[in-house]
């Protein structure tokens, strides 16, 4: 049966670890920093590195997110929908293809 296996059409993934490309969704209030874009690409192996990379292309955004090296109180960041405050904060590891969502903290739920 192995003889009949067709050759793969796509070449296998490179062994070298590529840059971690992730999509970062930007809340309305921060879009002046991204030229109005709702989502931008960034690279980095940790959330901290992703934010540094964002700052390179969108100056001033880091200061809106961080204060004294910590996420600001009313800024929530989610990697693949999970709040990073419970996954290692700024050290949260990022993998290729992850989605990072930045949102202001709001009152919610069926209160």
């Amino acid at each position: 049966m192995t003889a009949a296996t067709p050759l793969p059409i796509q070449s296998p993934k490179p062994k070298v670890k590529p840059d971690m490309a992730v999509e970062v969704r930007i809340p309305t209030i921060l879009r002046p920093h991204t030229g109005g874009e709702r989502a931008v690409q960034a690279d980095g192996a940790t959330l901290s590195a992703v934010i540094d990379d964002l700052e390179k292309n969108h100056e001033g955004i880091k200061e809106r997110l961080l204060e004294n090296g910590q996420l600001r109180r009313f800024v929530n960041v989610y990697v693949n929908d999970e709040d990073v405050r419970f996954t290692g904060g700024l050290d949260t590891e990022i993998s290729d293809g992850d989605t990072v969502v930045i949102l202001p903290a709001v009152a919610g739920g069926a209160a």
């Binding site: 809340p27 309305t28 209030i29 809106r64 600001r72 949102l103 202001p104 903290a105 709001v106």
Partner: peptide
């Protein structure tokens, strides 16, 4: 967007 749109990051809400 409507719910988050006008939120300023400095005046969010945490219960």
């Amino acid at each position: 967007e409507l719910v988050y749109g006008l939120r300023n990051l400095d005046e969010g809400f945490v219960p």
